[in-house]
Amino acid sequence: MNLIVNGETQVLDTATLADLLQVLEYEGDWLATAVNGDLVHREDRADTHLADGDKIEILSPMQGG
């Protein structure tokens, strides 16, 4: 299925958000995730099922003013 990860369409066969992070090698406790504009808490990623066309945002800390 097509998933839009941080603005890029990717063909992935990952059932849950936790699976997606693992497949794409996102690691660390400093990430924040959202699916289709809604925050998904760290502890809910394994229960968050993905569907074709879902938009996933994966953010991490950076410098800011």
Binding site: L24, Y26, I58, L59
Partner: peptide, 11 residues
């Protein structure tokens, strides 16, 4: 102050 931005795969 800090911010958030998109993380790259494996980043």
């Amino acid at each position: 102050t800090v911010s958030l931005r998109r993380e790259t795969s494996g980043g």
